[in-house]
Simulated assay, not measured.
Amino acid sequence: MGGQLVREGHTGTGPGAITPDGCAVELYARLSVGSEPEVIASVLRPGASVLELGCGAGRVTHPLVALGFDVTAVDESAQMLERVRGARTVRSPIEALELGEERFDAVVLGSFLVHTSDHRVREGLLGTCRRHVKDDGVVLVQREGAGYHSDVPREREDRAAGCTIRILSSDPVGDGVDEVRVEYVFEDARWTQTFRSRELSVERFEAHLEEAGLAVGRYLTPDGTWVLARPRQT
């Protein structure tokens, strides 16, 4: 691929390389994984092919590989992909990804990427999901939970990583978009990330999926943050 895209409204500070969306490579290599691999694995057959979009440094990729899935990990950052082990890697912006006729049992769009502030980017993200999923496959999307934008400031501990994560602010910048500022504090380092996010109601979220040729099958978690969608048959 050529030069990296610049993501408007996305910045980051702290040690090491920072990606176009404000993510620090070393930070994401340190953060521990949550329940994402178990949620994903719960709806897949053993050994299923998985296309992980926006894999970062492999925080979710590595557990999926360890569980026996055949993972293709996509990210636009070469520095992030250098940290990924055990999976095939593809460097590309998600919305521009083209893998020919290749289709997957599951396509994963995590990290709340569906909440991008740019409507065209969202269309591109979901279009990539639809193009690359098998007709009988599933698309797994992670969306923001209730209070994500309003319950600020707040913090939580990533005890496994030794990190305090603080959502410092979520401020409107117009057109239904908020600028969110996050701080990550370790004993030996501190990073910040600022990004833009568009709050989506359940109705609006499901409408975006419909427009992309996807239909919600079910919500996988009690908080509604993980969603299983299937390709609509024409």
Rank of each mutant, 00 (worst) to 15 (best):
L140W: 07
R59G: 09
A96I: 00
R130A: 12
V60Y: 01
V138L: 14
A96M: 05
A161F: 09
I165M: 07
L125V: 02
D105H: 12
T72Y: 02
S169M: 03
R130Y: 10
D75N: 06
E102N: 06
S92C: 09
H115I: 06
G100Q: 07
V74G: 00
L67R: 15
D135P: 12
V173D: 04
I167S: 10
Q79V: 08
C55R: 00
L109C: 10
E101F: 00
E123I: 03
V71T: 08
V84G: 01
V114N: 06
D151Y: 11
Q142E: 15
A161H: 10
V90Q: 04
A57H: 04
R120W: 01
V84N: 02
F112H: 15
H119Q: 14
V173C: 05
F69V: 08
C55W: 00
D158S: 11
S117T: 00
E157T: 15
E82R: 11
V107A: 08
L126A: 02
E144N: 13
A160L: 15
R59N: 11
L97R: 00
A78G: 13
D118Q: 07
L168Y: 01
D151R: 12
G162L: 15
V84S: 03
P153T: 13
V141I: 15
C55L: 05
A106K: 05
F112Y: 15
T61Q: 09
R156K: 13
I165Y: 04
P63F: 10
L140S: 10
V60P: 04
I167G: 02
R85W: 13
S170Q: 05
A161E: 08
H132G: 03
V65P: 01
L113D: 04
V133K: 07
L97H: 01
D70C: 11
G127H: 02
S117V: 01
R166D: 02
R143I: 13
R103M: 05
R83T: 04
E101N: 07
A106M: 10
V139N: 09
V152M: 10
